[in-house]
Design a protein around this nucleic acid. Structure first.
Length: 687
DNA sequence: CTATTAGATGTTTTT
DNA sequence: CATCTAATAG
C-alpha cells in the first residue's frame, strides 16, 4: 500500500463516499438513522463515520459498535479497527461485538450487582434445551394426549416470550398454535427452569440481554454505563427486538448519541421476535433524528437489480426504495428448472465450475438456501467432484457427543454448581444412568446453602456418594473426581487444566464409543484453544457465544490459502456478497416456507428473505427450482411431490431471467424417456 | 436400574 | 439425522 501523507489521510476515505454517504459519515449532533438498501455501501459508510468521529477527537474506546450476527460483527469491527489503525495510529480500540457478546462482557464486570456468582456459566441453545428437558423430566410435567413439544421447540417458545415481552398464551396463539394444549405445563416448566438456572449459576443467551437491560435501566449502574460512551452505532437495526431496543434507548437516555443502520426490506428475524417496526419507529423514539437514505447500489449489475427491485415492488409497506446503479452491462440472471434435486446438484456444480473458468474463484461464489438440509445432495455432488466447500450454519463441532462430554467436564471444573454438566459427566460411567446420576448429585449437593447463591457440589463427599456407582465403574469414578479436584488447584494454567481433564476423560470415551481413539483427537483442538487462554472460564463462555462453525475453524491459517465454495443459509449470508450466487430450492413451500405461508406477514418476511438472497450477487445470479422434490429430506423413502415455482417468481419476474430447463416437463417426461428407450431398441434391431 | 434395540416421527431461520 | 417410545434382556 502506498503511504499517504497524514494530512491527506482523512480525505481518502471521505472522498470515496457519495454525497448521501458522506452526509451520514459527517453528521454530528443528535441521533442518526441510515436507511441503507442492499449493497449501498452500508458498512463502508458506518466505518467511515467511525473514522470521522475519531478524526474529530472522539476517543475510540468510547465508541460502541453493535451488530446481531457474529459474521456481520466480525466484518464491521474488523474493517473499522483497521481503518482507524491506518488513519489514526495510536488511537484506542473501538468497542463492539454482537449484542450478546457485549452483554456478556458487561455482565461479567457487574456480576455482583446482578447477584450472580463470579463463576457463572453461559448456556448455548442446546445446553438450554437440555436443561429444560431435564427440568421437565424431574417435575414430570403432565404427559397429555398429544406429545409434548421437542426440547428445542420448548426453548423457542420460551425465548420468544422473553424477547418479545409477550404473554405465553399470545406467543402460543401467534406462533405455536399446535402447542397450545400444553400451556399450563409450559408455565410451570418455565418457572422451574428459571429457578434452576439461578440455583446452578447459569445464564442462557436471553438472560444476557435481560441482564444488560437491567443494568442499563438501573438508577445507579445505568447512568454509569452511559457515561462511558460517546457514540453507539447499531448495525442491522431492522433485526432488533423489543429487548434490544430497550437496551439502546436506555443507553442513549444518558448521553451517547445513537446511530442506527438498516433496511426495513431486509428484516428476516421475525421468528426471534424482531420487527421492522423498530427501525420504522426510530424517528418516533428519537424525535430529533436525522434520516439519510442510501439507494445507490455498488454491488450488483443492472439486470440483477432489476430482479431485486421487481421483488421488492411486490410489497408496498415500509420506506419506498429503489436501487440504482451506474455499472454498465451485466449478464442476465438465470432461472434453471432441473427435474429433481439430484439434477439441481449437477446443474449447480456445473455452473460453479463454469464461473471458475471465467476467473471467479470458488471463494467468491456462494450457494444459498432456505434451510440447512437443502444442500444435502449438493454436498454429496461437490464431494464426488472434489470441489472444496465450507458450509456455514451446518453441523457444528460442538454438537458431537464426545465434544459435549469434554465441554461438560471443563464446565464442571470451572463452575462448582453446574449440576447439569455433572449429570452428563456422571453418566459416562458404566452402569450409571439418569437415576443414579441424580442420586449421586443429591449426595454431593451442599444443603442449607446461603439463600440466593448457587449451591456448590462438594466433591469431598464423593466417598459417600460413590456407593451409587456400580463396583466395576468405581475406579473410573475415583479417577474422574480426582482429576476435577486437581484441575481446580490454584496456579494451574488453562491449558494444563484442559490437558489433565482430557486425560481423565480419555479412558471413559474409549469405552463408550467404538471409535473412541479417533474421537479423542477432536478434543485436542479444544485443549489447544485452552492453551492460548489465561483462564479456562473465558474459553467455556466463548464456546456458547462464539462457537467454531466447523472443527476446521481451529485448524489454523493453512485453511485460508485454499479456495473453497461457500455454502450458507440465507440468514447467515445477510450483509455479505459474492461475485456469483447460486440460490437453490426456490420452490413454493421453501420460498416461502410452508410454515410461514399462513399469514400475510409471514409471506412478506419470506419475500424479504428471498430478496436478501438475490441481492448478495455482484455479477452472476443463478436461481434453481427443482420441479420434483422429496418430502422427507432425511428419510430413505422416495416420497416426493411436484412443486410449483416460488410464488415470488411471477411471470413478470421470470421475464427478467433467462429460463433454462435441463429436463422436459414432468408430465411429458415419462413419455419422453419411454420413447427414448423404444427408439434405442428399434435402432438396435435395425442394426 | 441400565443398556440395547427397533420403530416411529418431526414444523426453519440465529444469538 | 436426532430424538423419543416401547419392549426386552441383563
Amino acid at each position: 500500500m502506498t503511504p499517504v501523507p497524514p494530512s491527506d489521510r482523512d480525505a481518502v476515505w471521505l472522498a470515496e463516499l457519495n454525497p448521501e454517504q458522506r452526509r451520514a459519515a459527517e453528521h454530528r449532533d443528535g441521533p442518526l438513522l441510515i436507511l441503507a438498501g442492499a449493497g449501498t455501501g452500508k458498512t463502508t459508510t458506518l466505518v467511515a463515520r467511525v473514522a470521522s468521529l475519531i478524526a474529530d477527537g472522539a476517543p475510540a474506546e468510547r465508541i460502541l459498535l453493535l451488530s446481531f450476527t457474529r459474521r456481520a460483527a466480525r466484518e464491521m469491527i474488523g474493517r473499522a479497527r483497521s481503518l482507524v489503525e491506518h488513519a489514526h495510529p495510536g488511537a484506542g480500540r473501538i468497542l463492539g461485538g454482537t449484542f450478546h457478546s457485549v452483554a456478556h462482557r458487561l455482565v461479567r464486570r457487574h456480576h455482583a450487582a446482578l447477584g450472580l456468582p463470579p463463576g457463572f456459566a453461559v448456556l448455548d441453545a442446546s445446553d438450554a434445551a437440555d436443561l429444560l428437558d431435564l427440568v421437565r423430566q424431574e417435575t414430570g410435567s403432565a404427559t397429555g394426549e398429544r406429545r409434548f413439544p421437542r426440547k428445542h421447540t420448548v426453548l423457542d417458545i420460551y425465548s420468544r416470550t422473553v424477547n418479545a415481552h409477550v404473554a405465553l398464551s399470545d406467543v402460543l396463539a401467534e406462533a405455536f398454535p399446535w402447542c397450545e394444549e400444553h400451556r399450563d405445563a409450559l408455565v410451570t416448566l418455565f418457572r422451574a427452569y428459571g429457578e434452576r438456572k439461578r440455583r446452578l449459576g447459569l445464564l442462557d443467551l436471553d438472560d444476557l440481554l435481560l441482564s444488560w437491560r437491567a443494568l442499563a435501566q438501573d438508577g445507579i449502574s445505568g447512568p454509569a454505563l452511559s457515561d462511558e460512551l460517546d457514540h453507539v452505532l447499531v448495525d442491522e437495526y431492522q433485526d432488533v427486538n423489543g429487548l434490544q431496543v430497550d437496551i439502546v434507548r436506555s443507553l442513549a437516555g444518558g448521553g451517547p448519541s445513537v446511530t442506527a443502520v438498516g433496511d426495513d426490506f431486509q428484516a428476516i428475524y421475525g421468528f426471534r421476535a424482531a420487527s421492522a417496526r423498530h427501525i420504522l419507529d426510530f424517528p418516533k423514539h428519537f424525535p430529533t433524528a436525522t434520516v439519510v437514505t442510501l439507494e445507490q447500489n455498488y454491488r450488483s449489475t443492472a439486470p440483477i437489480l432489476a430482479v431485486a427491485n421487481a421483488i421488492s415492488a411486490q410489497d408496498r409497506h415500509g420506506f419506498p426504495k429503489r436501487l440504482r446503479t451506474d455499472r454498465p452491462g451485466g449478464i442476465l440472471p438465470e432461472l434453471s428448472l432441473p427435474l429433481d434435486e439430484a439434477e439441481q446438484a449437477r446443474a449447480v456444480a456445473e455452473r460453479v465450475l463454469a464461473a471458475r473458468e471465467e476467473g471467479i474463484d470458488l471463494r467468491r461464489q456462494a450457494v444459498l438456501f432456505r434451510t440447512n438440509h437443502d444442500s444435502a445432495l449438493l454436498e454429496l455432488e461437490l464431494t464426488r467432484r472434489q470441489i472444496p466447500f465450507v458450509k456455514y450454519g451446518g453441523l457444528r463441532y460442538l454438537e458431537a457427543a464426545h465434544v459435549k462430554d469434554f465441554v461438560a467436564v471443563l464446565r464442571v471444573s470451572d463452575n462448582g454448581a453446574d449440576e447439569m454438566s455433572w449429570f452428563r459427566v456422571l453418566q459416562l460411567l458404566d452402569g450409571v444412568g439418569p437415576m443414579r446420576a441424580r442420586r449421586i448429585i443429591d449426595r454431593l449437593r451442599e444443603d442449607g446453602g446461603r439463600a440466593g447463591s448457587p449451591d456448590e457440589l462438594r466433591l469431598d463427599r464423593w466417598t459417600g456418594a460413590r456407593e451409587h456407582v456400580p463396583d466395576a465403574a468405581c475406579a473410573h469414578g475415583d479417577a474422574l473426581i480426582g482429576a476435577v479436584r486437581a484441575s481446580r488447584e490454584p496456579g494451574r494454567s488453562a491449558g494444563a487444566r484442559a490437558e489433565l481433564l482430557r486425560d481423565a476423560l480419555a479412558p471413559l470415551l474409549r469405552l463408550r464409543y467404538p471409535d473412541g481413539a479417533v474421537r479423542l483427537l477432536d478434543l485436542d483442538q479444544l485443549v489447544a484453544a485452552a492453551q492460548q487462554r489465561s483462564e479456562l472460564h473465558g474459553l467455556v463462555a466463548d464456546l456458547a457465544l462464539d462457537p467454531p462453525s466447523s472443527s476446521s475453524d481451529w485448524a489454523g491459517p493453512p485453511h485460508l490459502d485454499e479456495d473453497y465454495l461457500v455454502l450458507s443459509t440465507v440468514h447467515s449470508a445477510k450483509g455479505l456478497e459474492w461475485e456469483a450466487v447460486h440460490v437453490i430450492a426456490a420452490y413454493d413451500g421453501n420460498f416461502p416456507a410452508d410454515m410461514s405461508a399462513g399469514s400475510a406477514e409471514g409471506i412478506a418476511e419470506e419475500r424479504r428473505l428471498f430478496y436478501v438472497a438475490l441481492t448478495r450477487a455482484r455479477r452472476r445470479l443463478h436461481v434453481h427450482a427443482p420441479v420434483r422434490y422429496h418430502h422427507r429430506p432425511h428419510g430413505r423413502d422416495d416420497a416426493h411431490g411436484y412443486g410449483r415455482l416460488s410464488r415470488f417468481l411471477t411471470d413478470e419476474v421470470q421475464g427478467l431471467f433467462s429460463v433454462s430447463r435441463s429436463a422436459p416437463e414432468p408430465a411429458s417426461g415419462i413419455a419422453a424417456s419411454a420413447r427414448g428407450r423404444i427408439e434405442v431398441s428399434v435402432d438396435a434391431l435395425l442394426r
